[in-house]
Amino acid sequence: AEKTGIVNVSSSLNVREGASTSSKVIGSLSGNTKVTIVGEEGAFYKIEYKGSHGYVAKEYIKDIKDE
């Protein structure tokens, strides 16, 4: 049951290796980017990222929809 969301930041949002603010940053997404959410862990969504997965803070994702 995948969902999509939109990155809701003015600059960019860090994509992390794990569901923690201390996890390594593996990339970033600019505002209004559409993401595919494959799961959630605590305050983070697990998303599809560059052929693999990454984690982003839930508070910066809006317009969550079921695909």
Rank of each mutant, 00 (worst) to 15 (best):
A1Y: 11
A1T: 09
A1G: 14
A1H: 15
A1I: 13
E2N: 13
E2V: 13
E2G: 13
K3N: 04
K3I: 11
K3T: 09
K3W: 07
T4A: 06
T4R: 08
T4C: 06
T4S: 12
T4N: 07
T4E: 11
G5P: 02
G5T: 04
G5H: 04
G5S: 03
G5Y: 03
G5F: 03
I6P: 02
I6C: 08
I6H: 06
I6N: 04
I6K: 07
I6G: 03
V7G: 03
V7T: 08
V7F: 02
V7H: 02
V7C: 04
N8H: 13
N8L: 07
N8F: 06
V9I: 12
V9M: 08
V9N: 08
V9K: 14
V9S: 09
S10P: 08
S10I: 13
S10D: 13
S10T: 11
S11K: 14
S11H: 10
S11F: 10
S11M: 13
S12P: 09
S12Q: 11
S12K: 12
L13F: 03
L13R: 02
L13I: 12
L13D: 02
L13E: 03
L13K: 02
N14E: 15
N14C: 08
N14Y: 14
V15F: 02
V15P: 00
V15K: 00
V15Q: 00
V15I: 07
V15R: 00
V15S: 01
R16Q: 12
R16I: 05
R16H: 15
R16P: 00
R16K: 06
R16N: 10
E17M: 12
E17I: 13
E17T: 06
E17A: 11
E17C: 06
E17H: 09
G18S: 12
G18C: 09
G18Y: 14
G18M: 11
G18K: 12
G18P: 01
A19F: 04
A19T: 07
A19E: 02
A19V: 05
S20R: 07
S20V: 05
S20F: 08
S20D: 10
S20Y: 14
S20C: 06
S20T: 13
T21S: 14
T21V: 09
T21C: 07
S22K: 13
S22H: 13
S23R: 04
S23C: 06
S23I: 02
S23Q: 04
S23H: 10
S23L: 03
S23E: 04
S23M: 05
S23N: 04
S23W: 03
S23D: 06
K24P: 15
K24N: 11
K24H: 08
K24C: 06
V25K: 06
V25P: 04
V25A: 05
V25Q: 04
V25E: 04
V25R: 05
V25I: 11
V25T: 07
I26K: 04
I26G: 01
I26V: 07
G27E: 01
G27N: 02
G27Y: 05
G27A: 04
G27M: 05
S28L: 15
S28H: 14
S28C: 06
S28A: 13
S28T: 14
S28E: 12
L29K: 01
L29Q: 02
L29Y: 03
L29V: 10
L29P: 00
L29N: 00
L29S: 01
L29E: 01
S30N: 14
S30E: 10
S30M: 15
S30F: 11
S30Y: 15
S30W: 14
S30Q: 12
G31S: 14
G31V: 09
G31E: 12
G31C: 06
N32P: 05
N32E: 11
N32G: 14
N32C: 06
N32Y: 09
N32L: 11
N32R: 09
T33E: 09
T33S: 10
T33M: 11
T33R: 05
T33W: 07
K34S: 07
K34L: 14
K34R: 15
K34W: 07
V35R: 00
V35E: 00
V35I: 10
T36E: 05
T36P: 03
T36Y: 14
T36A: 08
T36G: 05
T36I: 14
I37M: 03
I37D: 00
V38M: 08
G39D: 09
G39W: 04
G39R: 04
E40M: 09
E40C: 06
E40A: 07
E40G: 04
E40I: 07
E41C: 07
E41H: 10
E41V: 12
E41S: 09
E41L: 09
G42F: 06
G42L: 06
G42C: 05
G42V: 03
G42Y: 06
A43Q: 12
A43D: 12
A43T: 10
A43M: 14
A43F: 11
F44A: 03
F44V: 02
F44D: 03
F44C: 04
Y45M: 02
Y45T: 01
Y45H: 03
Y45A: 02
K46N: 03
K46H: 05
K46A: 06
K46Q: 08
E48F: 09
E48N: 15
E48A: 10
E48G: 05
E48V: 14
Y49K: 00
Y49F: 13
Y49H: 04
Y49N: 01
K50T: 05
K50N: 15
K50C: 08
K50S: 08
G51I: 05
G51E: 09
G51R: 07
G51W: 08
S52W: 09
S52T: 12
S52F: 12
S52K: 11
S52H: 14
H53A: 13
H53M: 09
H53N: 05
G54Q: 01
G54D: 00
G54K: 02
Y55H: 02
Y55C: 00
Y55E: 00
Y55I: 00
V56Y: 00
V56D: 00
V56H: 00
V56C: 03
V56Q: 00
V56P: 00
A57W: 10
A57H: 09
K58P: 01
K58E: 02
K58T: 04
K58Y: 02
K58S: 05
K58A: 06
E59P: 06
Y60P: 02
Y60A: 13
Y60W: 09
Y60C: 06
Y60S: 10
Y60F: 11
Y60R: 05
Y60T: 05
I61W: 02
I61N: 01
I61D: 01
I61H: 01
I61T: 02
I61Q: 01
K62L: 11
K62V: 14
K62W: 09
K62P: 03
K62N: 14
K62C: 08
D63Y: 14
D63C: 07
D63M: 14
D63T: 12
D63K: 10
I64C: 06
I64D: 07
I64W: 09
I64F: 09
K65R: 13
K65Y: 12
K65I: 13
D66L: 11
D66P: 11
D66K: 07
D66C: 07
D66N: 10
D66S: 14
D66Y: 07
D66H: 09
E67C: 06
E67F: 04
E67I: 12
E67T: 12
E67N: 15
E67S: 10
E67Y: 03
